[in-house]
Design a binder for these strands. Structure first.
Lengths: 166, 166
DNA sequence: AAAGCAACCCCAATATCTAGGGGTAAGAGT
DNA sequence: ACTCTTACCCCTAGATATTGGGGTTGCTTT
């Protein structure tokens, strides 16, 4: 690991802690050469395959930007959006795939967005699922009425899995 | 490190390679529990302190978005922007700070942007440095004429430092 | 079509990291 | 004012990762 101070190529780990409930490891390193210290973070890779076929790292920011438009004039603040993006990331990581289709990201946004704000959810779904008529809206609304909000799979799953965690 | 497949908390490293010219380490891990494999990447932390005081991870995307506007109708493509953002990140990392003021990011953009396109550079500088009159433009133009393009410090520095690298 | 590159796979020795302990200090939240 | 949390500091023995070798495959780029 290159030292960001002197660019020497080698450094040793001084301290190491799991962080983010174990989904990443934070290390404190010391440059073998100049002795300066810096922090690093190790995270599971999560790449998104765009429709063009190109692949890029998952970005919470992009999720937020996509959803923000749907939240205009709605009681949704940046913290809500940040939390939503976190949940989406969680959901995607828990599928286990290292590479995920961009469309899957769109899908993963739906459940937590519904929990956050049903109006924003409708707007978002109308774009994402290509609503073409008033009936499409009505259909979705009927669905919303019929299906009670369920805790998104991520959470229910993690409740099953979590007993194994300390 | 939590397994993204089964969420078990422990995994072991199967393989480990420096990547990105040593600025990060890519590991292949195997879950102790379910045996599935996944990749991780360890990178030096680089946080940006926004004017609000909030801190967020550095994002090349944000740099690109900021510069793209200045590049309208200019012969600058996405690859150029990606390269520029990479250079900016490089420049910031080589300062050694783990946290950097948002303003520093703006500053770091200037030299590589000038190398890329002087028109875009002028536009960007006029916003970033709050030009208020035609004279400000003239002054900057005079400066550009006076100072030949110098390889940005990052590169000249790395040429000094690189002999130590293999 | 061939070369280059990035990710993937395997192995073995030793150097290095981790876990667990126990701390301090600063900032956010109540 | 106090608690919580996070980042920082230090220590040690045993467990684990790293390096360097070797190799495959598939995608870009020439």
């Amino acid at each position: 690991m290159i030292c960001p101070f002197c660019r020497y190529e080698d450094s040793r780990v001084i301290d190491s802690r799991p962080s983010d409930e174990g989904s990443s490891i934070r290390r404190r390193r010391e440059c073998t050469q100049c002795g300066s210290r810096f922090s690093t973070s190790e995270t599971a890779v999560l790449s998104i395959i765009k429709r063009s076929g190109a692949t890029e790292p998952f970005s919470r920011e992009k999720v937020i930007n996509g959803v923000r438009k749907a939240c205009q004039n709605r009681p949704v603040d940046d913290d809500d959006l940040a939390l939503l993006a976190m949940r989406v990331e969680e959901a995607l990581r828990s599928t286990g795939q290292a590479e995920i289709e961009a469309q899957e990201v769109g899908m993963a946004i739906l459940p937590p967005l519904r929990e956050l704000d049903e109006v924003a959810y409708l707007r978002y779904a109308s774009v994402y699922r290509n609503f073409s008529s008033l009936e499409d809206f009505e259909g979705e609304i009927a669905l919303l009425r019929a299906l009670p909000i369920e805790k998104s799979e991520i959470e229910s799953e993690s409740q099953v899995a979590s007993p194994q965690l300390k």
